[in-house]
Structure formats: structure tokens, C-alpha cells
Design a protein around this nucleic acid. Structure first.
Lengths: 346, 346
DNA sequence: ATTAGCACTCAGTAAGGGCGAGTGCTAATA
DNA sequence: TATTAGCACTCGCCCTTACTGAGTGCTAAT
């Protein structure tokens, strides 16, 4: 149905979408003919617009206003008409000078990446940390804090470090811990945390009937250490950009948006969707509604080191978003972060 | 000057402040006589109000509106008239059931505390993590990640864990690291990180002329590990409560407030002020302006384990804030967190 | 010292009118 | 047949005007 759009209709539609993206005002027929030098009269453009409205690509907010793209309109625009620009060098430079990751903690890196994304795209930036569950185990270490308390440190293949304090109930000597550490490191390397956990559960059941106390203890200890989920982390940067958008300039919508951006779990769910597929993903309008963000679009891309550790980052803004600018920003950032993670993990 | 306030003026002023806190509307003379059953006519109340205005405790937004407290008015109210209520049991319970800290990371704890503060006070909650600089060193550990990369773990007396990756340039064996660890742990325990750093710098200078290679290496390693500041962390929870306040219901002020709440550094500076003094501190209006938060008040209190590790938490909202409710909430939370930190550090 | 009474002020709301941007339809044109 | 000029019409926006009501300050009486 949309395929029947002839070239003229297409370029008029494109002009409307782009004008609206720039001005945030409904676009009228005369404005189009003026700004774009089609050799057409406003009346002709009106006829075309009328057709586009019938197809569900445009709506007019009221009789005497111009027209604005519908959600379906944006989707069509992004899928069929969008020409993604190259990332201007100035942005590229800002990233590369700004992002020295060496020695910084994962949290700091993520915050910094979020701030970068947000300040360059001039929209709200999101960064979701790699899920610990799906990272690949490289190393475990124990540090004795006191007689009852142990610090457990996991290191993933990609250099991600997580620590946790446990109280095992037994007072392990330094020597015991060393043996346990060696035992675990030999047996668990290369599996994802999820797999490790399964394996431990399995072996614990089998092991009960045998007598190797060391193994028994090692398994119990690591079981305890991994038993609880480490909550997913998400960073949101530049929320005020969202409030500055003219489409959200009522009190109610501002509060609504802020509430949505505060409920991290919903954002996590949303970003999760895009983690499966590789490359840049675009959620327009209701496709992003999972997070109560009506009228918003999300551009997201997963990042990952060579060895697992997948996270997601993205930019969220109004549907009227400059897709051709934002998409390459997200794309480039994801690539950059992946490269950094690789470098870190050597 | 304010001391000349007689009892009647005081209670009228108190009534005005409290009515305004409840309704967010300018309070008129008739409203006062109605709601509070003073045996006075509105005219009399008007005379008193006029005096109070002259003293700078009240203003009227325009001739035909009631009056609202000035910043000075709130200050006087809080200093002289405020009766702090006991914390209702329901809040107490919500805290104590909600807050099992055991085994959780500092970040998670702080986030949870922030959420608690915010949802119970119905205002924006702030939690600033203990500054690593001022925590007391208890233990350092090294974990060998690869030939070139070491993970350094600091544990503070209060159980705070920080880690950092360094690339020392030398490939230390496990045995070397153990000796170095033992050496450092013996010599540094009980000092604050800041002191530790000074000491290392000092000894490094002296040590150059001697020949004990182990000491030399140990010092260099720990020096490198401590060289960079670990950024202060602050958590902000429930920002949408701020936007729901009627005093900030214009687009501009919403954006302004959100920008202010986003610039963490300014919030940190603000909370820093309250860290010095013990107990609950109250910043009203311009006293909190350091963070571009005009028209806001901050209630803050430091928390700390027995052994250093001082952080600050608080609640931020409009000047028209229910001080008598919020103060005990902040107070109680700070005490609770301190107690938890103590328990953790054993 | 307190109060009743009264004139006055002024934000907020509602109603009316003109403006202008934009539309849809129709009839003329290439 | 596609395009265009012309025209009546719609409707949000803004400005003005008028009204209302809450609240004040002042004055004179109690």
C-alpha cells in the first residue's frame, strides 16, 4: 500500500517530516512549497498531503493547522527514506579525546559514556551495564576480611570486576582459601556466570555423597557467593533535555516523563529487547511504550567485548527526533565502547 | 527585633506558616480566624499580619492575595517555633523491614536508602557516599589479572570496598605480591586514605636512597593505586516529587530544577557543608543556593560508622516543606544507616 | 486595644472579536 | 488528466473588556 507512493509524494512526505523535526510545528502546504522549491502550487501539495493523511502517515491536529507525521509516518520515514549521515568529525573527536577508560571503574565509564551520548545528541542518554549473569567467568578470588567475613571478587573475561561480601559460617584459613581458589579457577574458567551457577548446583548434589571436603567447601562457598543476583545497573544522563522538548511542555507530561525515566526497571526491560539483535535498533512510539514513554523514540545498540559482556546503550527522545543525526552517534558510541572493552580485557 | 514578637503574634505567624505548608496558597486573615478559632476578628489578624510583613517574615504576592512566609520567615519558624514530631511508627517499620544491608554493595545500599528517604518524605532524596579519602584504611589486597594488570582492592574499617585496575609495568609473581601485601597491611592500617597517601609519598622520597627492593616496590605499587581520586558518588531519588510541587509548575522552573538536580557536583558541594557539623542541618532558601536551587530547602544529616567513613544524606524540596515531618525522617535515617555501617564493619 | 464597615486592588475567568494560517472544494486551465 | 487559482470556511491564538471574589488598608466607633 505504501509502496504505491510515487516519487513526488515521497519527497513531499520527506520534506514534511524533516520540516517538522526541525521546527516542531505542524507543516502547511504553503510552507512546503516555499522551503523546498518544488515546482508545485500549494494546492497540489495539499492534494498529496490529503492522500498521505488517508494512508495514515500524517494527521492534522485540527482543521486549520498544518500536518504532522504519525507514528506510522515516522516508521515509514526511518525504514524507507532516511539517509543516515556520517558522523561529523567534531563529534568523533569529542568522543575520542573524552574517553580514556584505562583504570576507571565500570560505573565511571558508564556514567561518562552516558554523559557523552547525552551532550552530543542533545537528548537523554541511556547506558545499561553488562549483565553479570551473561559475562564469562575468568577468575575468582577471596579476601579474608575477618574471621566470619569474606570478600569474594569475580573477574569476567572482559575485565569487569564485581565484589560481594559473604559470611560462610566457617573460618577458612588463608591456605584453605588458596586451595579453594585454585580449584575453582581451574574448573570454572570460560563459562558464563549462569552456566557456572548451574554447574555448581549440579555438582553440589553429586558431591554430597563423596568425601572430598575441599571440593565440597569450594562448591558451597562459590554457590553462596553467586546465589543472589547482582542487580542490573542503568545510567540515565541528561533527563532535562527531554523536558525541554516542546511536545512535553505541559506540567503533566513533564511529570509523566520524569516518572518514567526514574523507574529504572522499565528502562532495563526496554533496553533488554534490543540486546538480542546486533546493531542499531530503533523503537518508535508505541514500540517503546513498554516503559510508559508515550510519544518517545529510542535508538539503541548493544556493545560487547570479544568475549561476551554485553551491555546496551542508547538515546531516548521525542518521536520527532533527528534520526539521521542520532543513529550514527549511537552506532559510533557502541562501537567505541566495544573497542575499549576489548582493549581493557587483554 | 524578632524577640519582641508577643505570644499572639507568634501563634498567628505559626498558623500562617502551617496553613501555607498545607495548602500552598497565600493565607488570608479570614482563613486564619476560621481555621484556627482564635477569638479575634479578621481585622485584628490583619493588623498583626501587617506587622509581621514589616518585620520581613511575610510577603503578599500582590495586594489582593493573602500572605506567604518569606525565607526569613521560614528560618524564624524553624528556629523558634517548630515542634519536631516523633517519627510515626509506620515509617519506622517501613525502614526497618526494608533495609537489610547485609552483603549488599555500598552502591545498592545507598540507592535503597535514597529511595526510602524519597518515598517516605515524598520529596527528593539525596545520599552521598562516604568519601574514600577520609575513610580509614584497613586492608589492601592485590589480585593478578594478567601479566601486566593488577586488581587492587582496598577495604576500609567500615567495610567499604573499592577496587581499581593498575598496570604497574613489572610482572609481579604471586609470592612477591603476598610479601608486598603483608608489608603494606602491617604499616598502613588505621590511617585515613589521605594520610596513607602522604606517608607513601614521603617514604618514597626517602626510600630511593636505600636498597630494600621489596619496600621500594610496595610503595610504588600502592602509590600508583592511590594516585587518582575516586570520584564522590551521590544518588538522587524521587526527582519527580520536586516537579509535582505547585511552586515549580512552570516549564522553566521544571527545567531549571531538573538541571540543578542533574549537576551532581553542585549537590555534592552543598552536602559537603553539612558534613562538618554533626546532627541534622537545615538549609533554607538562599542557604541552599549554592546548587542553583532557588526556593528550595535542604534537610541533611551526616552518617558514619564508629570508625570514620562519613557520608551525608538528606531530603530536598520546596521551602514550603513540612519540616516537622521531614526532619525526624532524615534524623532517623541517618542514625539507622550509621548503625548498619557499624554492624557491617565488625 | 479591638472591631465593624467600606472603598479599593488585582488575579483569574469568561466572553467577544479580529487575525492569520491552513484547509477542502470547485471550476478554470494547460 | 493533472495542475492550479480562487474562495469560503475553520479554528487556534491573542487581545480587549467586563465581571467576580478574595483580600487588603484605613477610619471611625466601641
Amino acid at each position: 500500500m505504501i509502496d504505491t507512493l510515487n516519487e513526488r509524494s515521497q519527497s513531499i512526505f520527506e520534506a514534511i517530516v524533516e520540516d517538522y523535526i526541525n521546527t516542531a510545528e505542524p507543516v502547511g502546504s504553503r510552507a512546503i512549497t516555499k522551503r523546498h522549491r518544488f515546482d508545485l502550487s500549494p494546492a497540489t501539495v495539499r492534494n498529496v498531503m490529503s492522500d498521505l493523511e488517508e494512508m495514515g502517515l500524517l494527521v492534522s491536529p485540527h482543521t486549520s493547522a498544518g500536518r504532522i507525521p504519525t507514528e506510522k509516518g515516522y516508521q515509514y520515514y526511518v525504514e524507507s527514506l532516511l539517509k543516515v549521515r556520517d558522523l561529523p568529525d567534531e563529534f568523533r573527536n569529542r568522543f575520542e579525546t573524552g574517553a580514556g577508560f584505562a583504570g576507571k571503574s565500570m560505573e565511571n565509564i558508564m556514567q561518562e559514556v552516558g554523559n557523552m551520548l547525552s551532550s552530543i545528541s542533545r537528548h537523554t542518554g541511556l547506558v545499561m551495564a553488562p549483565r553479570f549473569q551473561s559475562t564469562v567467568f575468568r577468575q575468582i578470588e577471596f579476601v579474608r576480611l575477618s574471621q566470619t567475613r569474606l570478600l569474594v571478587i569475580f573477574v569476567s573475561e572482559s575485565g569487569l570486576v564485581q565484589n560481594k561480601i559473604i559470611e560462610p559460617g566457617i573460618d577458612f584459613s588463608r591456605r584453605d582459601l588458596e586451595s579453594i581458589t585454585r580449584y575453582l579457577n581451574q574448573r570454572l574458567t570460560g563459562m558464563t556466570i549462569a552456566e557456572v551457577r548451574e554447574k555448581i548446583a549440579l555438582e553440589l548434589r553429586e558431591e554430597r555423597n563423596r568425601y572430598n571436603q575441599l571440593e565440597q567447601q569450594a562448591l558451597e562457598l562459590s554457590g553462596q557467593a553467586l546465589q543472589e543476583d547482582i542487580a542490573d545497573q542503568i545510567y540515565v544522563a541528561g533527563t532535562s533535555y527531554m523536558l525541554e522538548q516542546p511536545e512535553f511542555n505541559t506540567n503533566d507530561s513533564m511529570v509523566r516523563i520524569m516518572r518514567a525515566l526514574e523507574s529504572k526497571q522499565q528502562l532495563i526491560d526496554l533496553l533488554d529487547c534490543s540486546q538480542q539483535a546486533g546493531g542499531v535498533q530503533i523503537f518508535i512510539g508505541s514500540q517503546a511504550n513498554r516503559a510508559h514513554l508515550d510519544g518517545c523514540s529510542l535508538i539503541a545498540a548493544p556493545f560487547s567485548g570479544k568475549k561476551g559482556a554485553i551491555g546496551t546503550l542508547g538515546v531516548i527522545g521525542p518521536m520527532r527526533m533527528n534520526y539521521s543525526q542520532v543513529i550514527p552517534i549511537v552506532d559510533f558510541t557502541a562501537t567505541l565502547v566495544s573497542r575499549m572493552l576489548d582493549r581493557e580485557s587483554q
